[in-house]
């Protein structure tokens, strides 16, 4: 065959630059921004998937470049030239065809092997795992700690270094639990119990988001996982197990009365008070959470007031109606909720 050998390296060098540049861009984006990057694993489970991803990448890259270069070379080398004769009419070559049928098969066997290895590792759920139960709602996350007998929402705390088994289901439609840095997706399906298993390696806050289209507010169904040091975690559990704090300021006290005598208690629970609703998030310690609206807004008195005044304006389509409250009532309710540390 004509001069394939000399043309190849000349073509190959600029082509090799493309993925290198793409990788650099990826690294730059990953380094300076707060993406929940699947390739920035913070648990052994996500780590093994990340390793698998890079393994695949470095198997695929040379194959990809080789085939694209072969295509490009063929097109350029054999493009029509004036006065060229009719090419030889070759109908095939059984031997090379069998070869290029078998070759991808061999590569795929290797891929399959690493796939199964990683599956076995990620699916492993040690019996001593800590158990957390997360139930999907449109559009927020109910979080239960069976061992501590308390319930919270949208913010999951786990101790660093401890394997956690998150039991997942849904009360309405299908949602999907996903914290890219800690765990791949596990769907939350009504009538099914699924599990995500991970062990956070470093103290930190990890962003999660619903990954199965679940309706109008699918985009705004986020949550956070806090990987705490064991002492911080123990203190957090200790606090969560307490009934709601008694308000100390006048505004908060008035807010408490308003809360107890209004529609709020039909949907929300505040342990230690008459509020026993189970439709919306448990608010017993809502003041201690960092965000509201399923990781939509920072938990500040102004944002809480904005939410109470018109939840449909802040997060259109969520289950809480506009209660048409006067602004002084809103402020007192916000003061009360913020006091529930």
């Amino acid at each position: 065959m004509p001069s394939g050998k000399t043309v190849w390296p000349r073509l190959a060098r600029p082509i090799m630059l493309v993925p290198a540049l793409a990788l650099l861009a990826l690294a730059a984006l990953a380094g300076c921004q707060g993406s929940p990057l699947a390739l920035n694993p913070q648990s052994p489970q996500a780590g093994s998937i990340s390793t698998l991803a890079w393994t695949l990448f470095f198997i695929a890259l040379p194959v990809f470049l080789l085939v694209e270069a072969l295509l490009l070379f063929t097109v350029l080398r054999f493009r029509n030239r004036r006065g060229a004769e009719e090419p030889p009419q070759i109908e095939g070559n059984r031997r090379v065809e069998i070869l290029w049928t078998a070759a991808p098969g061999v590569v795929l066997l290797i891929v399959l092997w690493v796939t199964f290895q990683t599956m076995a590792f990620v699916l492993e759920s040690p019996p001593e795992s800590m158990q957390v139960q997360v139930i999907g709602h449109r559009y927020w996350w109910e979080v239960k700690y069976p061992s501590g007998n308390f319930t919270t929402a949208n913010e999951i705390h786990v101790p660093v270094g401890q394997t956690v088994r998150v039991d997942l289901t849904s009360i309405d439609v299908i949602h999907s639990f996903w914290v890219p840095e800690l765990s791949g997706k596990v769907d939350m399906i009504p009538g099914h119990q699924n599990h995500a298993v991970f062990r956070a390696l470093n103290v930190g806050t990890y962003r999660g988001q619903c990954a199965e289209y679940c309706g109008v507010d699918h985009a705004y169904m986020g949550f956070l996982v806090f990987a705490d040091s064991p002492t911080t975690f123990a203190a957090w559990v200790q606090n969560e197990q307490q009934p709601a704090a008694q308000p100390t300021t006048a505004a908060a006290r008035q807010g408490q009365e308003l809360f107890a005598s209004s529609a709020c208690i039909g949907c929300h629970t505040v342990v230690g008070t008459p509020a026993r609703g189970v439709i919306g998030p448990d608010l017993t310690h809502v003041g201690s959470r960092t965000t509201i609206g399923a990781n939509l807004l920072p938990n500040t008195p102004a944002n809480v007031a904005r939410w109470i005044a018109d939840p449909q304006q802040v997060k259109p389509g969520n289950a809480m109606p506009n209660l048409h409250l006067r602004s002084d009532v809103v402020d007192k309710l916000a003061a009360y909720l913020e006091s529930l540390k």
Partner: peptide, 15 residues
Amino acid sequence: ISVAVVPFDWQVTDT
């Protein structure tokens, strides 16, 4: 092929 790799798919499916 990469999305047939089950654990990788757990990360990238529905993205």
